[in-house]
Amino acid sequence: MKLDNEDLFEQEVEELIQEIHTHYGYDFSGYARASVYRRIKRFLNNQHLSTIGELREAVFNDSFYFESFLQEITVNVTEMFRDPSFFLSLRTNVLPILSTYPFIKIWDAGCSTGEELFSLAILLKEEGLLERTKIYATDINQKVLKQAKEGIFSASNIAAYTAGYYASGGKQEFSSYYLSNYGSLKFDSSLIKNVVFYPHNLATDSSFNEFHLVVCRNVLIYFNRQLQERVFTLFDESLVNLGYLALGKKETLAMSEINKNYNFVDKGNRIYRKTG
């Protein structure tokens, strides 16, 4: 695809974002633009569309087509045990404290296709906490929530996942958690029997419960400062006092209003604790 005028493209994208909000209720106005532009160009390319006009027609004539567009714009790429040092830190610094509660509630915000969710569940099981933990797994995208519930992941990443599991302090044989079949891994569904899957849009929906731990890694990178601030406030409202907040390795509370109420538990792995 060749665009003669980048400015024109960007202007058309802004109009499209507004129309999507009106028509479908999804608000992308607070999304960081560099990624949105890149995802849209990518989608145009893959769909062999040459203009935003063609895209508009397709997106508004067919809600299924819009679904696949939504999938592309909201990046759903994820992996098990991404940053093993984070999971190790969670295991050693956070779970021992959470284990003092009779009942634990965790929010996995932006859980995508579930790789992180199953990684968390495996950790909780090995620390003896899974039975008394309820995890709320949310995403803007209902399609990926369904996938997450299936717990079937491609076997092509198995080497990296296995290495990540052991580097995260894994105590069992990693292979005891899944059945391998025709290039895919089906994870033990008992891992998610206490998981609630919930469509939730961080850009527009409000707080729905109180949690001891909120995990939201590499989701905020797609939002602008204003939307980030909204989400931080949402997390703050959703955390009990002394609750934990885990962000992606390159995300920070530093610029946020709520920062003053949070201390680092592990700076390198961006694990915060609410203090007041």
Binding site: A34, S35, R39, V75, V77, N218, I221, G248, K250
Partner: peptide, 18 residues
């Protein structure tokens, strides 16, 4: 493990896509 993108206001965005 991150892609680096550049925003119009001359700041960085990170991305974990494909």
């Amino acid at each position: 493990n991150y892609h680096v993108l550049i925003e119009k206001d001359y700041s960085f965005s990170l991305d974990v896509s494909e």
